[in-house]
Amino acid sequence: EPSQADLDALLSAVRDNRLSIEQAVTLLTPSSGGGSGGGSMDAKEILTRFKDGGLDRAAAQALLAGRTPA
Results as ranks from 00 to 15, higher is better:
residue 1 E to A: 11
residue 2 P to H: 14
residue 2 P to V: 15
residue 5 A to I: 15
residue 5 A to R: 09
residue 5 A to V: 15
residue 7 L to I: 10
residue 8 D to F: 08
residue 8 D to V: 07
residue 8 D to P: 04
residue 9 A to E: 12
residue 9 A to L: 10
residue 9 A to D: 12
residue 10 L to V: 11
residue 10 L to Y: 04
residue 10 L to T: 03
residue 13 A to R: 05
residue 13 A to K: 05
residue 14 V to K: 00
residue 14 V to E: 00
residue 15 R to V: 09
residue 15 R to K: 13
residue 18 R to D: 07
residue 19 L to D: 01
residue 19 L to G: 00
residue 21 I to W: 01
residue 22 E to M: 06
residue 22 E to T: 06
residue 23 Q to N: 07
residue 23 Q to F: 06
residue 24 A to R: 00
residue 24 A to C: 06
residue 27 L to D: 02
residue 28 L to D: 01
residue 29 T to Q: 11
residue 29 T to S: 10
residue 29 T to R: 07
residue 29 T to A: 08
residue 31 S to A: 11
residue 33 G to S: 13
residue 33 G to M: 15
residue 33 G to L: 08
residue 33 G to K: 03
residue 34 G to H: 12
residue 35 G to L: 11
residue 36 S to G: 11
residue 39 G to S: 11
residue 39 G to P: 12
residue 40 S to W: 14
residue 40 S to Y: 13
residue 40 S to E: 13
residue 40 S to V: 10
residue 41 M to R: 04
residue 42 D to Q: 07
residue 43 A to N: 05
residue 43 A to H: 09
residue 44 K to F: 14
residue 44 K to T: 07
residue 44 K to H: 12
residue 44 K to N: 06
residue 46 I to Q: 00
residue 46 I to N: 00
residue 47 L to N: 00
residue 48 T to I: 10
residue 49 R to I: 11
residue 49 R to G: 03
residue 50 F to I: 01
residue 50 F to A: 01
residue 50 F to L: 02
residue 50 F to C: 01
residue 52 D to E: 14
residue 52 D to A: 09
residue 53 G to I: 01
residue 54 G to T: 15
residue 55 L to R: 01
residue 56 D to H: 04
residue 56 D to G: 05
residue 57 R to M: 13
residue 57 R to D: 04
residue 58 A to Y: 09
residue 58 A to Q: 13
residue 58 A to V: 13
residue 58 A to E: 14
residue 58 A to M: 13
residue 59 A to V: 06
residue 59 A to Y: 04
residue 59 A to Q: 14
residue 60 A to Y: 01
residue 61 Q to N: 10
residue 61 Q to T: 13
residue 63 L to F: 05
residue 64 L to D: 01
residue 65 A to D: 06
residue 65 A to M: 13
residue 66 G to R: 05
residue 67 R to Q: 09
residue 67 R to W: 15
residue 69 P to G: 11
residue 69 P to H: 09
residue 69 P to Q: 12
residue 70 A to S: 12
residue 70 A to C: 10
